[in-house]
């Protein structure tokens, strides 16, 4: 089965790293994978989206309406790319909303965004990954925590197994102790969900 995963957030949140981990995990699982990334200028604090496609796929980009899952590291960006999703698809979101640094621009609240995603018929799960990662000592591990949370919800079936994801984290992140801990914490939090 093909799986189309959208990862969205703000440049600098470790979005590409998250996608790299998923790709490694898919390779470990023996699946084909493509990851289309955003680099360069738009990486500087801008809106970043990465397309991860697993299975019998050839083209790098997920067409609108065909995404199975969206992993959002930031709320506004998660909502922005929800248009890539299929009806009723799942959204796993970090409870973090960063107003764009534009003077006099009104940002919606986190509650607004979550509400609008649910109202659009999407299955929405959320966790405060930054807060949880800070408890482990490094806010930068919010991304692997969110990955753990996603895996714990059973949403990465057909892409990777939990053990494969752990190995992938160790392959992709150089000093990966906190990142792996965060991943495990994410799994745990999902089981409580």
């Amino acid at each position: 089965m093909d799986r189309n995963i959208v990862i969205a957030g703000v440049g600098g949140q470790g979005i590409i790293t998250t996608a790299k981990i998923l790709a490694e995990a898919a390779l470990i699982e023996g699946r084909n994978v493509l990851v289309a990334e955003t680099h360069g200028l738009s990486q500087r604090g801008g809106s970043v989206v990465v397309h991860v496609r697993v299975g019998d796929v050839e083209a790098p980009l997920i067409p609108p309406g065909m995404g199975d899952l969206l992993i959002g590291l930031e709320a506004i960006e998660a909502a922005r790319y929800a248009s890539l999703l299929a009806p009723g698809a799942s959204v796993v979101m970090n409870e973090d909303l960063q107003p764009p640094p534009l003077p006099r621009v009104k940002a919606p609240s986190l509650g607004d965004v979550l509400g609008s995603l649910k109202a659009a018929g999407l299955r929405v799960y959320s966790v405060n990954a930054v807060e949880e990662a800070l408890k482990l000592g490094d806010a930068r591990s919010a991304n692997t925590l969110l990955l753990g949370y996603t895996a714990g919800l059973g949403l990465l079936e057909g892409v990777a197994r939990p053990g494969g994801l752990e190995e992938a984290i160790a392959r992709v992140i150089r000093r990966s102790r906190t990142a792996v801990e965060a991943y495990r914490r994410g799994l745990e939090l999902a089981s409580v969900h």
Binding site: V10, G46, S47, E77
Partner: peptide
């Protein structure tokens, strides 16, 4: 016959890249 994407009713501010 591509599926119709869900309509998210939220007014989202743009996020151009910014100086770090």
């Amino acid at each position: 016959g591509l599926p119709k994407p869900p309509r998210v009713e939220a007014s989202l501010p743009p996020r151009p890249p910014a100086l770090c």
